[in-house]
Each structure stands twice: as C-alpha cells, then as structure tokens.
Design a protein around this nucleic acid. Structure first.
Lengths: 212, 212
DNA sequence: ATTAAAAGAGAACACCTGTTGACTTTAAGC
DNA sequence: GCTTAAAGTCAACAGGTGTTCTCTTTTAAT
C-alpha cells in the first residue's frame, strides 16, 4: 500500500488556548460553587468567554472536563510530593520543612487541590475513582519511602501502611481546613497544629505496641 | 383585656408525617446524588410523594430543609458520642470498644452521617458553618474528657486540643472511607486500620516531645 | 494566494427547574 | 355535625439547561 498518510494534524493555536480557558474557568467557578457537578456547561463556557456549543470541540461532556482536571491536578501533586518525600531523612527537621513545603504548594495550587478534595467524594463516580487511585498511589509511595527510615525498622508492612494512611489523612484534613478559611492567622494556627500532630505520630511509632 | 386567646394550635397529624417524608426523601436522594445542592426541590417532593408546592408548607427553602437535616443529624451524633466518651477509662480496652460502638453507629445512621460529611465542605455556607460548629463542639468535649485521663497529665491544653483534633480527623477519615465502600471485607479492614491508628496516637502521647 | 480542516457563533429544540396563585380536601376543636 | 385553619393539589409562568444543526471565521499547510 502507498501511504494512507494521515494529513499532518492541524495544530491550531486556538485549540490549546480555549481548552485551557475552559479548564481554568471550571477551577475558578469551583471556588464559588464548591461542587463540580453543581456547575453547568453553560456557566463554564460563559466564564471562559466562549459560546456553549464551542465546549464540545474540546470535551465530550462535563465529565470529561472533570476528568482532565483531575488528571492534571493529580500530576501536579504527584510531582510536588515526590520532591518533598525525597528529602525525608532526619525526622526532627523534615516534619517542619515538609509542612512548609506543603503549605507553599497549597498556596500556589489551591484551586486544583480544592477541586481534588471536593470531588474526592463528589457526585461523579469516575472522578471519585480517579482521585482515589491517585491518592492511593501517593500513600503507597510514602509507604516505601518511610520503610527506609530507621524508625520503621521494627514495623511490619501493614503497620507502615497504616502509618502512611494516618499521615496522608492528617495532611488532607489540614488541607481541607486550610482551604476552607481565609484568615491568615487561622491558617498559621492550622499549620502549627499539623506539625504538632505529625510529631505526635512519629513519636508514637517506636512505642506502637505499648498500648495494645 | 379579655383573652385574645390564640386559638389552640391545630396539630394536624399530616404535618409531622409529610415533614419527615421530605427529610427522609432528601437523605435517600443523598445516597445517589452525593450532594445536597445538586438535588432539586421537585425531586425531593417527588420522592416524598408530594406535589412540589406542598414543600413550601414545611420549609421556606431547600436551604431550610438542609439545615433541619444538619441539626437533627448533629444531635443524633452528639448523643451517641456522649455515650461512647462516657466510658473511656482504660485505653487498652476503650480504643477497640469505642471503634466498635462507632462502627455500629455508622451502620445505623449512615444516611445522616453521610449527609454531614458531604455537606461539611459543601456548597451551602450556612450548612457548612452549622456542621463545623457541631463538630467543633464534639472536639472540645473530647478534649475535656481526655484531659481527665492519666496519659494527659503531662500535656498542656494546646497539646490536648491537637490530640483531640487528630483523633476526630482520624475517625472522620475512617467514616468517609467506610461510607464510600460497600464491600464488607473492606469495611472490616478499615476498622482494623482505625483501631491501629488510634493505638499509635495514644502510644505517642507520652513521648510527644521526643522528636521536637 | 488558495484550500480546506478545524474552531467558533448563532439559533432552535425539548426539558427541567423554583415559585406563584387560586382551588379542593382534610380533620381538629368547638 | 359544623366550622375553619391548615395541608395538599393543580396549572401556569419565566428562566436556565444540555444538545444539535447549520453557518461563518480563522489559520496552518500546501
């Protein structure tokens, strides 16, 4: 056969631009609506400065938009947490430093994080599953990194997994509270609390069996 | 003046019945919709077996319905947690027993708990605030009860508050995960994890300052 | 400069929504 | 058993929604 050469793809600059505008619009509306499925396709198009029917040039569906946002947000988080986890060696130091790093991340990516945490148990099953999977991945990567630390040498795998889950839940609870307030005094109080709680958790690990 | 006696109030049996039907319908729809503001007044009325305009005989608004649900759910939770907290004396025992009690509570009140946890950071500000206040109350009551325990004698007030917050967050994370799954094998795994995590937390409390 | 694929605009559709007003029915209190 | 306030029904409205279809504009590739 001769080349059934698929005509070189168009690469119209408007494509990427409008797609981004739609995604940004959805994130923006998320700040007010607090729920993805409570926002309409028309609202998103309006906020993006585009006519409703143009939406379909980029996404099949609101669901597809949501999934794209989830993937992008999870990837940003994965990258950041990878960097943070990479420097955990001295517990004394890294708890505070990791909290600082995460605080910075939250400030810069508050829209996408807000989206992830809201839709984690939101109305869209596909979204829920994608986010759950992304967070589970983070949790398991934290497990393998914690397993290398001295303090984990006397813990079995299940204990390490439970420890990671506890850390993840604590950080998520912090993030949810921090995203829900605007007062910066309360935000610093929340971060102080996060650090204290993480210290408690890692102080307890060596004495895990004292109570049981 | 002679008695401007307000005619004795009517007390129609349909009043309470339909009101309950509306609230139950909303809780029921919550299982599918996963979000209160994503459900319409008409849906609720339909599910309750009532014409839409009859809704207004009982609530001004969907918001008012939501607030009524929140209040009722918070009260049920307050009562149950009060009983659970009342028997915390021997850490070795009460962690497991409290977890069992909470598991039972979750099974019996899963609809109202689901509602509370979903709307905690949901779209309705009034609802959010009511729920936040109710949970904060629980947290502070847990603080005063924990303060009486031997293990808390060497902790200051802020540490006790942070400890309570950690416990509350851990239990809430458990509840959210447990409500999101239907597999009973996964539910028991989640409860096992909850117990283990609580043990870690209370094992760490005496050694809190070891890391800092 | 011409071409044609892809992006965007515009209008129309059928549907569902919250809220209203005027009505009919129910049943508690006299 | 009458009375009447309150609960429930019915019909209508104005407005927002998702989606489709046709038409116009843009712009990368020839």
């Amino acid at each position: 056969m001769s080349k059934p050469k698929k005509r070189s793809t168009r690469n119209d600059p408007r494509r990427e631009r409008t797609r981004r505008a739609l995604m940004d619009a959805a994130l923006e509306l998320m700040q007010e609506a607090h729920s993805f499925n409570a926002m309409s396709l028309r609202e998103v198009a309006r906020e993006a400065g585009v006519v409703p029917s143009a939406f379909y040039r980029h996404f099949d569906d609101m669901s597809a938009l949501g999934l794209a946002l989830a993937m992008e947000s999870l990837e940003a988080m994965r990258a950041e947490l990878g960097v943070i986890r990479h420097e955990l060696t001295e517990p004394r130091l890294w708890i505070e430093e990791s909290a600082n790093a995460f605080e910075r991340y939250l400030k810069e990516h508050h829209q996408s994080t807000h989206f992830l945490l809201r839709e984690r148990y939101g109305s869209n099953p596909t979204l829920r599953q994608a986010i759950a999977q992304g967070l589970a991945l983070q949790q398991s990567e934290l497990s393998t990194d914690l397993a290398r630390l001295p303090l984990a040498q006397h813990l079995d795998n299940e204990q390490i997994a439970d420890l990671s889950a506890l850390v993840v839940n604590t950080v998520i609870s912090y993030a949810e509270a921090a995203l829900a307030t605007e007062q910066s005094t309360q935000k610093t109080a929340l971060k102080r609390r996060l650090v204290t709680q993480l210290r408690l958790i890692f102080a307890g690990a060596p004495h895990w069996n004292a109570v049981s």
